[in-house]
Amino acid sequence: MSLQNAYNSVKRALSTAPPNDAYLQWNAPGVEDPKPNEKETAQKIGQTMNKMQQHNFDQHGHAFRATHVKTQGIVKGKLTVQPDLPAHLQQGLFKSPGRVYHIAARYANEPVFLQADQEPGPRGMALRVFNVEGQRLEGADPDATTQDFFFNNAPMIELTDIDTCLEIMELREKYFDSPTKLSAATKLRTDAVKQSAPAMLPNTNMISFSFYTQSAFRFGDYYGHMALFPMLDDMKNHAEKVKSSDSREALRDWLIEYFAEHGAKYEFKIQLGTSPEHHPTENASVVWDKATAPYQTIATIEIPPQNALSAERRTFWEDRMKLSPWDALAEHQPLGSINRLRKIVYEISRKKREAANATPLKTVNSVHEIP
């Protein structure tokens, strides 16, 4: 037994959480607890996001997404469901062990502006899975055959919940042109330590990052957090930090250089929740303890060597692709207020991009539509 496993065993023995395999139904009492004014709050967040999109448009003459503005790489590959997947994990798009899906993914910086890569901060990955079958969520595109997942390189999100999200987004919009003033205002908050956490993330080659959904999703009968863990033999070779003397586009350049010669592989894993107290959906800043919700492998993702950022691929994804965790299978319904607000905010952001760029977004149902 490894030291980490021994440590987790001790934590598990001391925990008051239900047994690790006592998986809770996704719609059990307490899993979600919506507030009565959430739609109004989400509308305010969307309007604030639109203001930040307008700031970017005024500076660059182009409307970007409301967050994850800066594209670093776009790749295609395949997702293979684990051949020996246990019955309790055969849910949603993972219901057929050994099934292979085409996928496409976009690596990006999370901030709401075109951040220089010397600046540390959250990094994200948007993942689209194609040729997905099953009942779709109410309001989802009935003709779509895709499933979107969104990941960041931290297991929690400092935005916490819908009310905190509004407060932080209003600060980011107010001080859009002054990171120094934004930092000063953030430090006055009671959750200042939490809000400063993203700046402490490692600023290294994105190929070395683990990525997390941060928020919870329905997983068939149950609910959980999902994550991607890189399977690199030479991880240490990609741990170099971006230096002040490096290019403003260092992360992009490193990804392009890597995928020109190498492929990537990720383990796709899930933590299944057993209680709202220990594995909450409404407070997305809580990291689920691996001792009480151990990660279980459900698939692998393989990405072959390729041109990770051709001009055609970048402009197609940025200006034609629309993604949403709510345009999805019913068995992977987003949970918690951070996810519920996305249903409204993503649509508001999409309409702003379409109008400002005079370019309609489209439903992309085949990986072959992407250049």
Rank of each mutant, 00 (worst) to 15 (best):
P34T: 13
D143A: 14
M156H: 15
E40W: 09
S247E: 07
F219D: 00
Q147Y: 00
H238D: 08
Q195E: 09
I256E: 13
P111N: 02
E133R: 07
G30A: 07
P371M: 13
S196I: 02
D143I: 02
K343M: 13
H332M: 10
A328D: 14
E282Y: 03
E170T: 11
T41W: 12
P34N: 14
K187Y: 11
G61V: 06
A63S: 11
P86S: 08
Q306K: 08
Q118V: 08
G139M: 02
N307L: 06
R65L: 11
P230N: 03
Q47T: 15
F176W: 14
H102Q: 15
Q25I: 02
E170W: 06
N5Y: 03
E331Y: 08
H102V: 04
S310H: 05
T16N: 12
S245T: 15
I103D: 14
A250I: 07
N56E: 12
R342L: 14
E249N: 12
Q4T: 15
K39L: 14
T164V: 10
E354M: 04
A330R: 11
G46N: 06
H332S: 06
R106A: 13
D58N: 13
P18H: 05
D289C: 09
T164H: 05
R128P: 00
K181M: 15
S247M: 06
A311W: 01
F149W: 14
S9Y: 12
S183W: 09
P155F: 06
L3C: 08
S9W: 12
Q72C: 12
N205V: 05
L201G: 03
R136W: 05
K265Y: 00
G134S: 04
K343W: 08
